[in-house]
Nucleic acid binder design. Structure first.
Length: 548
DNA sequence: ATCCATAGCGCC
DNA sequence: AGGGCGCTATGGAT
């Protein structure tokens, strides 16, 4: 493998080829052109993809593979399979803190002394070697190596998605907002429909100056007219019958849309017809991606019609059907559940196998197993699930028991959950001590079960994130081979846990659909040897709301 | 003026 | 009284 290490050094970029030892110092403007001339099979090694790749993309340079040392380090430092290595056991260094300057935790004096700006080429080479050494020592069958590779590819995808942006029509969005809220208000004012609802609420509650945006004021006003609620949450308000309830709920819906995805949001996050959030690969403890700015992962259905393909282009939107239950079946090697997972609808498979009576029940039961429901209808369905799929339920139950004991758990590829806090352990040992009070024992038990629900979900959510990462990686690879007759290429523009969107020239749509489907098959084979099917639902459409 | 926790709700 | 997030407004604290 030809590794080329890159570091940003003050105003310049320095590179080192590990095989030959050749080094170059380049002006940032030269870097992209220089990079474009290198062997396409080069593996680029740098501290932080988000720091160095955007400039290359802006210059039209795409890289096939790169190692993100920051992401890799974070994975390896926490991974059980390499816990015995020097890399994992060593003290915390500047590498463990953010390299991009975006704060992770409390900045200290040390951060200023050894910040990313002082990272030398040799620092980066040393870290890369330490990581490769740790991986070589990993106590697994190569899963962690696959995971860190996938994670780094994810970082490339994230930068490329940010570069492309989600095609977004401000005209359609404005029309939607106007239809739902009324015309755009003057700054500080309420849109007409909200103002009207506000008036109704004030009237119904006999509170002429009430600000319905204030939960505290609203709560007081509701209680003053005899509505016995302890909060203004939707589900609690719904329990009561009073003419004020409906307008309050409606107002809250509109207020949510206005504040989270209204005109201000549009002006901040949509420019030149593109919604450009920051994607944060590995930003969630389980390995899921996070986003920063614009709430990219919470794009409400109400405004998805504004996500529109450019003229002559189309959106290929795909989601993996019942990803988490399928992942569980595969991890557990549960053949019975794998049989239920044959075909496009796993939940219907449960009904056909007579595990439960209806599809909604199947969904409730499965999600209950993944999240750790103990009560209500979901809890009641657990014994049936256990009887039908002892292997699959065994996997999540065992993960829950480990968590309750304060042990770590790992995903299929070896991402390892964090330890509970020191306070958690103290509480547990207090409860074990002789003469421990009732409430201590009770609180300890509750904390243990809480952490157990976390570790239970961690293994499935985290492994699902790994499947999705491999899906993305395979898809990215085949998209790179596609182009319309005029040379324009389809692009990944959106990723939402188990869903991807490709903005594609219309001529490419069929090829993209095939690529999305094939990538899902490849991901299932890569991770689980094809033991469980991972069907994807694909839609080719003009706007996002037409998918599904 | 600025920071922080909380409430509430959007997504999977 | 089911897991993981991000974002906004509010309201108290500094």
């Amino acid at each position: 493998m030809r590794d080329v290490v890159v570091v940003r050094e003050g105003g310049a970029v320095e590179t080192a080829e590990l095989d030959s030892g050749a080094r170059h110092a380049l002006a940032p403007a030269e870097f992209a052109a220089w990079a474009a001339r290198q062997d396409p099979g080069t593996r680029w090694v740098w501290a932080d993809t988000a720091d160095l790749y955007p400039a290359l993309l802006a210059a039209g340079v795409r890289l096939r593979r790169a190692v993100d040392l920051r992401l890799t380090r974070r994975l390896l430092r926490g991974a059980h399979a390499v816990a015995h290595t020097a890399l994992a056991a060593g003290p915390e260094t500047a590498w463990d803190r953010s390299v991009t300057g975006q704060d992770e935790g409390v900045p200290s004096m040390m951060d200023d002394l050894i910040s990313s700006t002082t990272l030398s080429l040799d620092d980066v080479i040393t870290e890369h070697r330490a990581q490769q050494h740790a991986l070589a020592e990993a106590k697994d069958r190569g899963q962690l190596r696959l995971l860190v590779h996938a994670e780094s590819i994810g970082a490339l995808v994230a930068a490329e998605m940010r570069h492309a942006g989600v095609p977004f029509s401000v005209t359609v969005h404005d029309q939607q907002l106007t239809r739902i809220l009324g015309p755009k208000p003057l700054p500080g004012g309420r849109p007409a429909l909200m103002e009207a609802l506000c008036g109704t609420i004030r009237e119904q509650l006999g509170a002429p100056k009430l600000n319905p945006d204030s939960p505290a004021e609203l709560l007081k006003a509701l209680r003053a007219v005899g509505i016995e609620v302890d909060s203004t949450r939707q589900w609690e308000l719904e329990q009561h019958d009073h003419p004020a309830i409906a307008p309050v709920l409606e107002y809250k819906k509109l207020a949510r849309l206005l504040t989270a995805n209204g005109w201000a949001w549009m002006n901040t996050w949509v420019h030149d017809g593109r919604f450009r959030p920051d994607w944060v690969p590995g930003g969630v403890v389980t390995g899921r991606w996070a986003s920063r700015g614009g709430g990219a992962l919470q794009l409400p259905r109400q405004i998805r019609s504004a996500v529109r393909a450019d003229p002559g282009w189309t959106l290929v939107v795909a989601d993996a059907a019942q990803l988490e239950p399928r992942v569980l079946a595969a991890m557990a090697g549960d053949r019975v559940m794998a049989r239920a997972a044959r075909g496009a609808d796993l939940y219907q498979g449960l009904v056909d196998q007579r595990v439960v009576a209806s599809r909604p029940q199947a969904k409730l039961a499965m999600l209950g197993a993944l999240y750790g429901s103990t009560t209500g209808e979901a809890g009641a369905l657990m014994p049936r699930l256990m009887r039908a799929f002892p292997d699959a339920v065994g996997v999540v139950e065992s993960a829950a028991r480990s968590g309750e004991r304060g042990e770590r758990v790992s995903t299929w590829l070896g991402r390892t959950s964090p330890y509970p806090s020191s306070g958690w352990f103290e509480l547990q040992s207090d409860a074990q001590a002789e003469g421990a009070g009732r409430s201590t024992v009770q609180r300890a038990g509750q904390a243990a079960r809480e952490w157990g629900r976390f570790t239970r979900n961690f293994v499935v959510q985290g492994t699902a994130a790994e499947w999705a990462l491999c899906w993305l990686g395979h898809l990215r690879q085949s998209l790179a081979t596609l182009a319309a007759p005029d040379g324009v290429r389809p692009e990944l523009v959106y990723f939402l846990h188990d869903e991807v969107m490709v903005h594609a020239p219309q001529e490419c749509a069929d090829d993209v659909v095939a690529a999305v489907e094939q990538a899902a098959v490849s991901a299932g084979e890569l991770l689980f040897g094809g033991t469980v099917e991972f069907p994807v639902q694909v839609a080719v459409c003009d706007s996002y709301d037409q998918a599904k």
